[in-house]
Design a protein around this nucleic acid. Structure first.
Lengths: 204, 204
DNA sequence: AGCCCTATATACCAATCGGTATGAATATCC
DNA sequence: GGATATTCATACCGATTGGTATATAGGGCT
């Protein structure tokens, strides 16, 4: 046993592709097409591997989607957690809206939002997928509600506005942003949407 | 030729189902599942007819969807055109938001919005469907922009807000509303969303 | 009654769906 | 250098996809 033996932990033939790269490619396919419309043929082609390799490495189509969704939240939705650190509720909202805008105007990623398109389409086969995505969104929402409640306690909130209601409103805007971004809106139009949302944002 | 002969204009065997009822049933299937996830088997089952009858009466799946979309706009989106008659821009927005809310809280119709779910999912086969839906939405938007421009000319608008921008913002809210409605939000939550949107709506 | 035309029902089509069995290839362990 | 273990590529699986060919049933017209 030499010092290099730890780099390959398993005994058999080593896999000829990179797990992370393949998963990233799969994510892009799900992102563009949604879960149901992403066929195994298209996935394997984009990932550069064959079907048996995919099944051996990721389980099945649904498990692959879950891993891709994890990657999506980890890499593409990081701005949502970091936005919570902003000093005021308004600043949190601004960082969320601008973060969502930046995602939609990125030139190297697909348009639209994986969460939004997965929550919208709903063939019976994709029902558990949709349920999972909805559940994750609820937990994101809960984190922001909690942050807004701190803001309300700090006296930031106008009268008659509840944190939960304002978060729901904010999420509706972000979902609309993602939907418009996914259906061909220009960067200028999306930017205009975000600026308008910020202009309209309630002040105490 | 007696006086009743005009009721059956065609010569051959009369069709045994009602065209409008069948189309309404098809609409509900597309509405629940989206274009791609709505299979011919599910469509024919819901419509109570066989596949050859469907193809003879409606052409093919895509043509059936277009006819269903026409019906949807005619019956379910009528509030959008009638909202334009409201006296102020704010009143127009209120009628649009409350109309959308009413649709999402209807107990007899599917949840979500056919336009929203059709614009979100995007398998290659459904690309022309998506394009058509996006195009129709653009024309709805244009009508409201025009109405808002009248409102601006009437001095209703706050400084720094453009009609087109405010309409885009309003549509984002309605799309978010439909998306949340389609993914399990309660009536109370959706109502809260609309009330918050109206509270926040900019005043001069 | 018989002709004509259309709708119906059944059975079928090639293509694609997600998922696998199988055997060859390639690595480590002893 | 086997023996073992894992991945690879090909070819295949039954089920389902949107769409039809065919034959029968049922109406109006003369």
């Amino acid at each position: 046993m030499n010092i290099l033996s730890k780099v390959s932990v398993c005994k058999g033939r080593p896999r000829a592709f990179d797990l992370d790269e393949a998963l990233a490619a799969a994510l892009r396919v799900f992102w563009r097409n949604g879960y149901e419309a992403a066929s195994m043929a298209e996935l394997t082609a984009a990932m550069g591997i064959t079907k048996p390799s995919l099944y051996a490495a990721f389980g099945n189509k649904e498990a692959l989607f879950h891993k891709a969704l994890d990657l999506y939240e980890r890499e593409k939705l990081a701005y949502m957690t970091s936005a919570l650190e902003a000093p005021t509720a308004r600043a949190v909202a601004e960082r969320l809206l601008r973060g969502a805008l930046q995602m939609q105007t990125s030139t190297c990623d697909p348009k639209g939002c994986l969460g939004v398109i997965s929550a919208a389409a709903c063939g019976a086969e994709a029902e558990p997928i949709k349920a999972e995505v909805v559940k994750r969104r609820a937990s994101s929402e809960a984190a922001i509600v909690k942050r807004f409640e701190e803001a309300k306690a700090a006296g930031e909130f106008p009268d008659g506005l509840e944190p939960a209601a304002l978060v729901r409103y904010l999420f509706a805007l972000m979902q609309g942003l993602a939907l418009q971004g996914g259906s061909g809106a220009t960067c200028a139009e999306l930017c205009q949407l975000v600026e308008t949302s910020l202009q309209v944002w309630p002040t105490k």
